[in-house]
Design a protein around this nucleic acid. Sequence first.
DNA 1: TGGATAGATTTTTTT
DNA 2: AATCTATCCA
Length: 785
Amino acid sequence: MSAELLENLNPEQSDAVTHHDGPLLILAGPGSGKTRVITRRVAWLLHNGIHPSRILAITFTNKAAQEMRDRVEALVPQAKVHISTFHAFGARLLREYGSHFGQERNFTVYDMDDREKLLKIAIEDAGLAPSASNVNSFGAAISKAKNQLITPELFENSVHDYFTQCAAKVFPRYQKRLRESNACDFDDLLYVPALALQKDKDLRSQLDNRWHYTLVDEYQDTNKAQYAIARELNLDHPNICVVGDPDQSIYRFRGSDIRNILDFERDYPAARVIKLGENYRSTRNILAVADALITHNTERKPKPLVTNNQEGKPVRITLHESGDQEAESVAQKIADAVEAKRWFYRDFAVFVRTNALTRSLESAFIQARVPFQIVKGLAFFERKENKDILAYLRLMSNPRDDVAYLRIVNEPARNIGKKTLDTLAQFATAKGMSLLEASRRASLVAGLRPGAVKALVDFSRMMDDLRSQIDQPPASAVTSVLDKSGYRKALSESGLSEDQERLANIEEMITVAAQYAATTPEANIQGFLENVALSSSIDGYNKDQDCVSVMTLHAAKGLEFPVVFMVAMEEGILPSAFALPSGQGDMTNSKEIEEERRLAFVGMTRAMKELYLSHCQERSFRGVTRYALPSRFLAELARARASIETVDRQAPRQRISHDYENEPDPHEWFGEGNEPGTKPPRPVSHSAPAFPGSPSFVKKRVPEPIKIPTGPSLLAADPTHTPRVSPPAFKEGNTVRHQTYGIGLVMELSGMGALRKIKIRFQTAGIRSFILDKAQLELVVKGRS
DNA sequence: TGGATAGATTTTTTT
DNA sequence: AATCTATCCA
C-alpha cells in the first residue's frame, strides 16, 4: 500500500514524503513536483496511523486547497484532513475559539468594499475628513500594521510624522468599529488569532496539541501574522513541514516576508532541509532564460535549475509596434496553432502585469474568434444586485453589521434618506447600539419625522422576521430575502429589461448557494457568506474549458501551461513603475525590483514547451500613447542568448515627412487609417534608445489633433476630407453592432457633443459604455421608439 | 429623492 | 479611455 505512495518519486521527493517527526523545510524550485510531494506526504502520514484530525494543511488559495483535498481523497478515501487557506483557517479558529477572547461566533468577514466604508466612518470618528486618497492610505497603513502584528498601541509609539500620527488616531477607532459591528476584515482573520495565540498560553497549548502535523505550502509568501500562527501551533509538536521557493516570493506588498523561509533553519534549529531541484516541467531553453534572469537577484542563495528535459524551441522575444498589434499577434498566433492542430486553446496562457492590460487582449481574441477566459475576481458577486442580497444575508446572520445595514436599508427604496440615517446614526452611536437595534427603537429618536420612524420600524420588523429563519439553507434564504424585502417586487415591476437581468442574476445566485450547500457538510448561511468573502480570483479558473487563459502574473503562480505568452515586458510595467527609483516606492527600491524580477521568473517558469515574451514600441495607457522602453529584464537574459530568438514586428519605417506635425493625417481621427502607408511616420532616432537607458517613458511626439468644425457643410467643403455621413442617431432599444464586441442592445445614452456616451449590453461581452464619437457602431435594428 | 451632467481620477499585484 | 463622484436641477 505504502509503496504506491512512493511511485514515480525521485530520492529527494521520496525523502520528503517519508520524513517522520521534526521540522522539515522543503525548498522546491519551479516544476519540481512540490504539490505531488505534499499530497503524498499527507497520505503517507495517514497510512502511518496518524489520525486525520491531527493533520493541518495550509495552502495559498481555496483552489489549491480544494485540489489538495481531492488528491488526498483519491489516495486515501474518506480522509477528513483539515485543508484550507490561512485566512479560512483563521476564520475557523475565530468561530471555534473566539469566545475565549471576546470574539462572537457569528461575525461577518468584511471585504475591501466594506472595509472602505467602515474606514470612512472611523476617519470621521478621529475628527478627520475622509477623502478618496486618505481612505486608501490609512487602509494600507493599518493593513500593513496588522500583517506585522502591530497593535494600535504599538503603532501609536512609532508615530514619526503627520501621516502616521493621523493613522494612529484612525487605527484604534477602526478596530473599535469592527468589533462593534461584530466584523473582521481580511487582516483580522490572521491578526486576531495570532495575537490570541501569543497572549493566551492555555489556548495556545490546547491548539498546539490539537494538530500534531502541520504542512504549509507557499511558505515564502507568509507574513508575520501567518508566521506567528504557524509558529505558536508547533512549539510542543514541532512537526511542521513548510514548502516554498524564495525565488517565487511575490506578495511583499501584502506583508509577506521572504525571511520567514530564509530563516526557517534558525527558528527551528532541528530542521531538516530537503531541496527539490530537478525541474520536470519546462524545456532546457525556457529554464536557461529563467535562470539567466533570476541570477540577477542579489539577495538570494544561488540555486541552479536543472532538468533532463529536451532543449525545445528557443524562447522568442518579439517587438511590436503597439499594444493593440501585440494583442492581435498573440491572438493570431494562437488561432494559427490551433488551426494547424498543434495545440488546443486550453494549452495557452497569456500573463499580464496588471489587469488593465487584459483589455486589448480581450478585443483581439474576440476579433480573432479565439475562445478565452479572463481569470479575475468573481465578477458575479461584485454585481450590485448580488451584493445587495448578500448584505441581507449578512444582516440576518449578524444584526450588528452596520455596513450591511446601510447598504440595504433603502434598497429597494423605502423612503429612508440620508438625513434620516444621519439622525439615526447619531442616536445609535450615543447609545452604543447597532443601526438595526436603533431602528427598532426609532420612536425614541428625537428629530425623526413620523414617516421616517414608521419606515425604520417596518424595516427592523422585516429583518427580525427574516432573522427568525436564519437556520434555513442558504438557497432558500435568498428566496426569502427576495420575497420579504420587496426586492423581487421592485425589480419585476420596474419594467426595465436591465432589472429583469438583475433578477436573473439573483436566480443564478440561488444556484450558487445550492451548489455550495451540496458540497459542504455543515452548510449554513454564515458558511456561505464566508465562502463568498474568501474566494479568490484564481478560484474562477476553469482548466477543463477549451479556451485560452488570460491572467495576472500573481494569479499564475502554481499553474503550468504548455505555451505561455508574457506581454508588455516594458519598463514601468514589468518592472512596475512603482518599483522604479523615480517611482513612489520607499527607499528599498532594489528590493522592489528584485520582487518584480521574481514575478517575471514565476511567469516564465509556468511555461512547459514554448515561451513568448513581447514588448512594443509604443503603448497607450489611460488615453495617452507613449514610447515604451524594453524591460531591463529582457537585457538581463543576454547570458542565455543561445536560447533566444528575437523578432521585430514593426512596420518598415516610413520616410519622415518634414512637417507632419502641422499636417495631421485625417485618418487619425476618423479611425480609418488602418491601410498600410497611411500612418504618420514616427520619429526614429531621437526617441527611444534600443535597450534600457533611462528607466522612464519618453513622451511620444504625436501630432495634436486639430479641432475640426463638425458641421457637415464645412466638412464637405474641405477637399482633403471625404464628406462624412453624420453618425446615426442611436436610441435606447436599438440593436447595434460594435466592431469588436458584436451585437448589442443600446441601454442608455448620456452626455452631449463630443463626450456623448452610449451604454450597450452585448450578447457576449456584457455591459460596456463608449464615447459615441469614438466607438465604431452600426445600427442593425431600430427598437421601439 | 433621484436623475442627469460635468468634473475628477485612474496608483500593479490580492486573501 | 472609461469609470467613479460631486453637484446641480426637476
